[in-house]
Design a protein around this nucleic acid. Structure first.
Length: 216
DNA sequence: CACCAGGCAAGTA
DNA sequence: TACTTGCATGGT
C-alpha cells in the first residue's frame, strides 16, 4: 500500500477539517444533482435544483411524465438544458423501471452490477455513475473528476494522460475502501484543487500538500 | 480526431 | 467594464 494518498488525505484534512459532502433531502435529489453537475459548477446546479423543488419535481415519476421542453426550462441555470432534460428523463425512467422509488432494492445490488446498469443509461458516464454509487447509494467507490486528476498529476501520482479507470484503481488499491473515507477524500481533493492547484497556474506556496510535491 | 451543446461564477486584462 | 476560463457526456 503506497502511503501517498493517505498523506494527501491527512494533510488536507488538517487544513479543511471534515467537509460532510453532498447534503440532500433524498436519494433522487442526489441522482438529479449528479446529472446536472456534468461540466457545470455546483452553484448553477443549486439554482436548477431549487427550481425543481419549488415545482415539487424531485420525483422520477413526475419527470417521466413531463414534457421535455417544460423540464428544460426549469433546469436552465444548469446549462446544456436541452441535453440534461433528456438525461434526467432517461435516469428517471431507469429508476421507475428498476425500483419504482424503493431505493433499497437497488442498494442491495453489487457495485459491479449497479455500475454496469447505470453506465447503460444514456448520459451517464463513469464519473456520474460513481457519484451516484457513492453519494446516493453509499457504495465504497472513488469518484474521479477534473480536480482530483489535477491534484494527483501535480503530485506525481499519475501521468497527465492517465485515464479514469486507472486513477480509480490507484485509489482503490492504496486507500481505505470505505464509503466515508472515499467521500471525504474526494471532497478534500476538490477543495485543494480549487484553492491551491488551479489550472494553468503554478501550485500555490501555501498549499498544505506542498511537502509531498514532486513536480511543478 | 475536433467540435458542439449553454449556463454562470470567478478570474484576468 | 468586457473578455476568458472551467466544466462530463454523447452525437455529429
Amino acid at each position: 500500500m503506497n502511503k501517498k494518498i493517505s498523506k494527501i488525505y491527512n494533510n488536507a484534512k488538517k487544513y479543511f477539517g471534515n467537509l460532510g459532502w453532498w447534503p440532500a433531502d433524498s436519494v433522487f435529489e442526489i441522482i438529479i444533482g449528479a446529472i446536472l453537475t456534468q461540466n457545470t459548477s455546483w452553484k448553477n446546479v443549486e439554482k436548477a435544483i431549487a427550481n425543481l423543488k419549488e415545482k415539487r419535481l424531485i420525483d422520477p415519476v413526475k419527470i417521466c411524465k413531463m414534457r421535455l421542453t417544460e423540464l428544460s426550462v426549469v433546469i436552465r441555470p444548469a446549462g446544456c438544458h436541452n441535453i440534461k432534460a433528456k438525461r434526467l428523463k432517461e435516469i428517471s425512467r431507469f429508476i421507475v423501471a428498476e425500483c419504482a422509488g424503493v431505493y433499497s432494492k437497488l442498494q442491495k445490488r453489487s457495485i459491479g452490477k449497479l455500475r454496469g446498469q447505470l453506465l447503460n443509461v444514456s448520459g451517464v458516464g463513469p464519473e456520474t455513475a460513481d457519484s451516484i454509487l457513492l453519494y446516493a447509494f453509499g457504495k465504497p467507490v472513488f469518484v474521479v473528476d477534473a480536480y482530483t486528476k489535477r491534484v494527483f498529476y501535480r503530485h506525481g501520482l499519475i501521468q497527465e494522460s492517465a485515464e479514469y479507470d486507472e486513477i480509480q484503481v490507484l485509489v482503490h488499491e492504496n486507500f481505505p475502501r470505505d464509503t466515508k473515507s472515499l467521500n471525504q477524500l474526494h471532497a478534500l481533493l476538490v477543495e485543494i484543487a480549487k484553492k491551491f492547484c488551479k489550472k494553468n497556474l503554478p501550485l500555490c506556496a501555501e498549499c498544505p500538500l506542498k511537502g509531498l510535491l514532486v513536480r511543478n
